[in-house]
Computed example of a mutant assay.
Amino acid sequence: MPSSKILFTAAAICFLVAIAVPTAAITIGEDGAADDVALESTSPYATIDDGELTLDFAALNDRSRSEFDDVFSISVADDSIERIWLSHEVDGVTFYRDGDRNDELDESNPIVPAAGDTTSVGVAIDTHVAASGTKSFTVHVEYADEDDENADIELVDVAYSDAELGAGETLTVNATYRNYGDDRGSTIATLVVDGIVVDRQVVHVGAGETETVAFERSMDRSGTFEVGVDDRKPRSITVWPPGEPAPDFAVIEATLEADTIPRGESAAVTATIENTGNVTGETTIELAVGGAVVDTQLVELDPGEVTTVTFERQFDDPGEYAIAVSGVDAGTLTVTERELIVVLNREFTSSSAAAVVPAGVLGFLFAATGVRRRVNL
């Protein structure tokens, strides 16, 4: 079975809620980074100090539900990581990803990352059911089997449910893998649409065995799309405008606010979306960076309605990145090194500031520091 590290094992959720983690095999640095996983504060609710990530939610109302969409992020720098998920036993507290409050981040719905991916984590707190006390939560990081080097896994078949379908219908793609090696192993299956990786699944295959995974994708836009798995030659899938009442979405334009930014800064990408169908509906708009989807937004539009969506994404590494929104090219973003500015013969007044958080009816404080390693049996 895959080995896993339990990352940022937390203890103490209460009102006020405190979560502390014993440091173990992997230590988070002052910037929140571990060897191949990094936590970063992306909101005023999260701070990193002395290797601890602290989430502080003050003055929550009693018997209400509060959502905090972008509290902290999880970044991955190693392709050997297969899955990341969060677990806890706190009624009324939910972790979710990328601003989608219906996309709970748990073992049944984990992050399946590639190196360079960053996932935003939000927190929902329902004080109707959340009770005071001490609980815990854990971020699990699952790695590939250590025996993978003796596995030999190949994609042997790809089957499509349809070659033609109507806008709004679901396309199913079944990918079958065979392990020709001597040990159980795993690989990451990728669904590719028009050259962009739009979905991933981890596939575990025993020695000499086959395993099939199914991708399901709602085809919300009419047109012709090249759909494939991994590097297998794609197949042309035609999506017709709906013959019966149904929504049909089109990305009219996608643009970069700036085509050059310094490393560490965020780029803004804006897209214009129209529902060209004859029924109100919703669709998922996808931001792709370097040929892979890294963020999504859900939009709902009436017939003929036009709206714009904007993505903000931070880039920490210099280079050139192809940017697209739901398959529509937004341009190439160039990320440059920061210029070093040296200031000589200047005197600055030192000052310090203290932030005072007023006591509220309810509050949450989460902290995480380290890792211990385990093997799933």
Rank of each mutant, 00 (worst) to 15 (best):
P113H: 02
T54W: 07
A77E: 09
G281P: 09
G51D: 08
M1F: 13
V37C: 13
R63D: 15
T255V: 15
Y143C: 02
A207K: 08
A292E: 14
S66V: 03
F215K: 03
V192H: 03
E300Q: 13
V205M: 11
L301N: 12
L287E: 10
T260L: 10
Q314K: 09
A324L: 00
T23Q: 07
S80C: 03
A271F: 07
G181K: 00
V90D: 06
V112T: 14
L287W: 06
V158G: 02
V158K: 05
T284D: 09
V289F: 06
I81G: 03
R221S: 14
A12D: 14
E265V: 12
E142S: 03
G181E: 07
D117G: 07
I323N: 03
P110G: 09
I261E: 12
E226T: 05
I153N: 07
L365A: 13
V356F: 11
A322C: 00
E257K: 09
G277E: 13
R97S: 05
D49K: 11
G208I: 04
G181M: 05
L165R: 07
D295M: 07
A24Y: 13
S266Y: 05
A368V: 05
A159E: 15
A271L: 03
A367D: 14
Y96S: 09
P113M: 04
D50L: 08
E216H: 11
A368L: 03
T276F: 04
L362P: 02
S66I: 02
A250W: 02
V357N: 08
D78W: 02
G92T: 05
D56V: 12
A163T: 14
S64C: 08
I323H: 08
A131M: 13
A254Y: 08
L53E: 09
T27F: 10
G290S: 06
E209D: 15
V197M: 01
D220A: 13
G363E: 13
G181F: 02
W85L: 01
V71M: 06
G51H: 06
D302V: 00
H204G: 10
D162I: 06
T47C: 11
D152I: 04
R63E: 15
G195M: 09
T212K: 00
D126H: 06
T27E: 14
V198N: 02
G370Q: 08
P247V: 02
S136F: 13
S161Y: 08
F68D: 00
V121D: 15
E164T: 13
E104P: 03
D31L: 01
T138I: 11
E169C: 10
H88A: 02
E347R: 12
H204R: 09
H204Y: 13
I125L: 11
T307V: 00
I261V: 14
D147G: 00
R313Q: 11
T27G: 12
N275H: 09
T307R: 10
S186E: 10
A322R: 08
S352I: 07
